[in-house]
Design a protein around this nucleic acid. Structure first.
Lengths: 244, 244
DNA sequence: CGCTGTTTTGAGCGTCCTCAAGAGTAGTGG
DNA sequence: CCACTACTCTTGAGGACGCTCAAAACAGCG
């Protein structure tokens, strides 16, 4: 399945107004004034649908655009010579995909939809052009990149000196916080990814992830049944994340 | 020791020409034409010396500038409530420090000099202004941020699914490659950091790092004596990094 | 209803951590 | 100049955490 074959263009809406988007408070035009937003006109080149399991882009694809997630859920992963996949992140609505491609003008990871999704295609040339014109857009774009760096550093700490149960707790806590920002419940969530995907993200095997969920369940911190996770004791969860 | 007390200004050279800098081929003005470089005038606000062991900035400091390393060597680390420090990177001449601060206008890590160092102070406001004016500077700045993201993802893979010896091998290989870019020998290096700092960077204890060095020494891949490391078998080193 | 993929759980083992001791090195002051 | 101290690094022994291998339960789907 090539990238082209999953590309779709909503007829008659090739140019889409960020001003009307419900995700404005999370996305790239965050800091922009109403006036500027109206003048913005065309940050988004088009929209594109990506079916569950399909790739938005793949390692080696020419870098031409970044993508703002309008709806759905993605993972990014590093391809590897051996079979070992490394998931580098899970992304949800309002988050931006593809920033890794700027450095070499080539994508250096795969972005795969974990459910049927829709993204706004933001051509990088256009983003460069508009962020010279709108200082708020420029700043917000820099912030988005900077936040990714900060998140990655947090992830390095997690992988570097936290034990398995702390990693899983941090993973759940992070998901709930991001869901809350989007107006969803912070105590009940449905995982969009397998135990294996969580495992390669957290530097653990799928069995260890499963065992950690079971232990958190038995300890009354979470109620876990397959993909359904309910946070019973948020305080205990946060305490676990702090570490020893 | 406050940040202010280590600040120094070279008299009469408050504005410094990137055009004349030997690190141009690595640093922010990389893509800029001779003409633009001459017109650039003042990307660098001033220079600042940082003595070994002192912090260039600390977690919580107000973010006002990024720093291009002119000479010396730094580590960045996440402060933590418990004693556990997490080193998030080692930086050398031509590399840029402080990008984490953009997202919250506050620095979110400490940058500590591992030897007497000198940095170019690039006020962020100035960088924003100039990168609206010079598209090459804009693009190079984006590339620098993107490269940091890519590097961090590589680090996540290292921490997530490589064993101790592979991590140490990757660490040495990375250092040699970056030193070679700067015109230094790729087969002989002097470590600027302790085993403990390497350990917290690689998600290992200092003892494990030491043992890995000893094993790589015994296997004839490296010659290691304290901080002095010589690469005897570069091919074996690369093979180790690939993983199993 | 059988097939497939995901998840759970168990048993045994290996890598790396913890704790400990000792050697090597650098810096300081008598 | 050399003790003295502080720090770094090396090496060893024992143990724990998480991995590997294996099997079975469970859910989804044609």
């Amino acid at each position: 399945m090539t990238a082209r074959s999953v590309r779709m263009r909503t007829p008659g809406t090739a140019r889409i107004a960020c001003a009307d988007c419900s995700l404005r408070s999370l996305c790239l035009p965050l800091l922009m004034s109403e006036d500027d937003l109206k003048r913005l006109d065309a940050l988004v080149d088009s929209r594109r649908f990506v079916k569950r399991g399909q790739a938005l882009f793949r390692t080696g694809d020419r870098f031409e655009a970044v993508y703002a997630i309008r709806a759905g859920f993605f993972k990014t992963r590093l391809a590897s010579t051996d079979g070992q996949e490394q998931v580098t992140g899970f992304q949800m609505a309002g988050e931006v995909l593809g920033l890794d491609g700027i450095s070499t003008e080539m994508h250096l990871c795969d972005a795969v939809a974990l459910e049927d999704s829709e993204v706004c295609v933001i051509r990088y040339g256009q983003l460069e052009f508009l962020s010279r014109k709108f200082t708020d857009l420029q700043r917000q774009f820099h912030r988005v990149m900077s936040r990714e760096i900060v998140n990655d550093h947090g992830m390095m700490r997690l992988l570097g000196n936290r034990r398995a149960e702390e990693r899983v707790a941090a993973f759940v806590l992070d998901l709930t916080q991001r869901l809350r920002l989007r107006g969803f419940s912070a105590s009940s969530l449905v995982l969009r990814m397998t135990r294996e995907e969580i495992g390669t993200y957290l530097g653990l095997t799928l069995e260890t992830v499963s065992r950690c969920f079971s232990r958190l369940h038995d300890d009354g911190v979470l109620r876990v049944h397959r993909r359904q996770v309910d946070v019973l004791d948020p305080t205990a969860l946060e305490r676990l994340v702090e570490g020893p």
